[in-house]
Design a binder for these strands. Structure first.
Ligand SMILES: [Mn+2]
Ligand SMILES: [Mn+2]
Ligand SMILES: [Zn+2]
Ligand SMILES: [Zn+2]
Lengths: 132, 132
DNA sequence: TTTCAGTTTATAATGGTTCTAAATAGCTGT
DNA sequence: ACAGCTATTTAGAACCATTATAAACTGAAA
């Protein structure tokens, strides 16, 4: 299979559950944003056996740690993840809680002029909130 | 008192609890960032009667709705608020979960080139995550 | 002072996330 | 193929920030 090597190379055993989650997350034309509950629903729709919610949490966090998913900084009662791991930004539609990708070229270069002693910049995230 | 008019003009009754919370939030040299738990602690330290946690939540949300506080978009298990309601951005220290203000002049103008039909931009927030 | 909507409060409920510990499954060496 | 070992899965409990509830209280206006 397509993802077995990827997982093995990451030190993750290619279990049936992880491979199925890979298919839901990565066998798509476009990248997408999701919450754990949305992913759980997607898995139920596409796959015929059940995967425990705990496994979905575990797997998403494992994939995030390996850099296959990104977490997005939004205030919501749920955590948002992104299968688009390139450097990019987001519109956040307050009406329905949906995220829309904003490419770096749509924002322009961001140059942080201030430095904090002894700290490195790990990421720069721009969130553009949208209302009607 | 200093805050009675402010509250009345906002359509909020100047109750003892709200006035005391105003003192903790706004009687300071500098603005600051806080979670509800941190605010609760601050209130306990500065004031001698107890204010119910529900009242603190209610008041913070009322003040946010009136524009006296801002909510900050960070992923954390707790919601962060800001008494600095000017347009500005943040460093987020991943090590200790603390926020540091980044003035607009420290980031430079952000020009969002893409438009979403029928939507207006409500806010633009830049979050710069810091690691060691 | 009477009245009443607005507010406070203790407490319960909610819900996303994490923890637990037992069962299961993938991997390695034989 | 098998045994042995560790990683992983799982159901369910626990956790905990936040919100809902509904009864008591209070500020403002008549
Ligand atoms: Mn995570
Ligand atoms: Mn709020
Ligand atoms: Zn994205
Ligand atoms: Zn700030």
């Amino acid at each position: 299979m397509k993802y077995i090597e990827k997982l093995r190379n990451s030190g993750l055993r290619p279990t049936k559950q992880r491979l199925q989650i890979c298919e839901v997350l990565f066998d798509t034309e476009k990248t997408f944003h999701f919450t754990i509950n949305e992913l759980n629903q997607k898995i139920k729709d596409k796959i015929h056996n059940k995967i425990s919610l705990a496994t979905i949490y575990n797997t998403v966090h494992a994939f995030e740690k390996k850099g296959y998913l990104k977490q997005i900084s939004v205030n919501s009662n749920q955590t948002y993840f992104d299968t688009n791991i390139t450097d990019h930004h987001h519109f956040y539609n307050l009406k329905d809680g949906k995220l829309i990708d904003l490419e770096n070229s749509d924002v322009g270069p961001i140059n942080i002029k201030r430095k904090i002693d002894g700290k490195k910049i790990k990421s720069i995230e721009v969130l553009v909130k949208l209302e009607d």
